[in-house]
Amino acid sequence: MTERTLYEKYGGFSQVSKIVLSFYDTLLDNDEIGPFFDEVDMSRIVDHQTKFIASLLGGPASYTDKQLRQLHSHLEITDAHFDELETVLRGALLDHGIAADDVEAVVAEFGKRRPLIVR
């Protein structure tokens, strides 16, 4: 029998979508991170981020390292910004009932992308 992914365990795309919306609700109010989204089409970003977070949970969507690097290359994202993103992601996952061990697994997967996103 195949073990379920975290994506399947926690309800798939609809649940990930709720997590991402609360993630951005918090980020947009953040003085350090919020300005990155001032001139951004949020519906497009939410769609991309939902696919990205789904992939971190073992879901069907994924982005290559090259795509992630290219999508963030024009931004001045620092380690401090990335740390804040991790904190907000952790909180959003916990707020939506993701078990603490699973949250840490997802945050660890997110952390592996740091070199592609931080300048």
Rank of each mutant, 00 (worst) to 15 (best):
M1G: 15
M1R: 07
T2R: 13
T2L: 14
E3K: 12
E3F: 12
R4N: 12
R4E: 12
T5C: 04
T5A: 06
L6I: 05
L6M: 07
L6P: 08
E8A: 02
Y10V: 03
Y10G: 06
Y10Q: 04
G11L: 05
G12N: 04
F13K: 10
F13C: 10
S14Q: 14
S14F: 15
S14C: 14
Q15I: 09
Q15N: 15
V16N: 07
V16D: 04
K18G: 04
K18L: 07
K18I: 06
I19G: 01
V20N: 04
S22Y: 13
F23I: 08
F23E: 09
F23N: 10
D25P: 13
T26V: 12
L27F: 11
L27P: 15
L28S: 06
D29A: 15
D29G: 13
E32G: 13
E32Q: 13
G34R: 03
F36L: 03
F36W: 00
F37V: 02
F37H: 04
D38W: 01
V40F: 01
V40P: 00
V40Y: 01
D41N: 08
S43R: 10
R44W: 14
D47Q: 13
H48T: 15
H48L: 11
Q49V: 11
F52H: 04
F52I: 05
F52M: 05
F52K: 03
I53C: 00
I53E: 01
A54I: 03
A54R: 00
S55K: 01
L56S: 04
L57A: 06
L57K: 01
L57D: 00
G58R: 02
G59W: 02
P60K: 06
P60N: 07
A61C: 14
S62Q: 15
Y63D: 12
D65K: 03
D65G: 08
D65W: 04
D65E: 08
K66M: 13
K66A: 15
K66T: 11
K66W: 10
Q67C: 08
R69I: 15
Q70K: 13
Q70F: 13
L71Q: 12
L71Y: 08
H72C: 10
E76H: 14
E76K: 15
E76G: 09
E76I: 10
T78R: 04
T78K: 03
T78V: 03
A80G: 09
A80D: 15
A80L: 13
A80M: 12
A80C: 11
A80H: 09
H81T: 07
H81L: 11
F82C: 06
E84N: 15
E84I: 11
E84L: 12
E84M: 11
E86L: 09
T87M: 10
V88L: 06
L89V: 00
G91N: 08
G91K: 05
A92D: 01
A92K: 04
L93R: 00
D95I: 09
D95T: 09
H96S: 10
H96R: 08
H96F: 09
G97F: 03
I98Y: 01
A99M: 05
V103M: 01
E104M: 00
E104F: 00
A105C: 05
V106D: 00
F110D: 00
G111W: 01
K112P: 05
K112D: 05
K112F: 05
R113P: 13
P115Y: 07
L116R: 11
I117P: 11
I117T: 13
I117V: 10
V118Q: 10
V118Y: 12
V118F: 14
R119K: 15
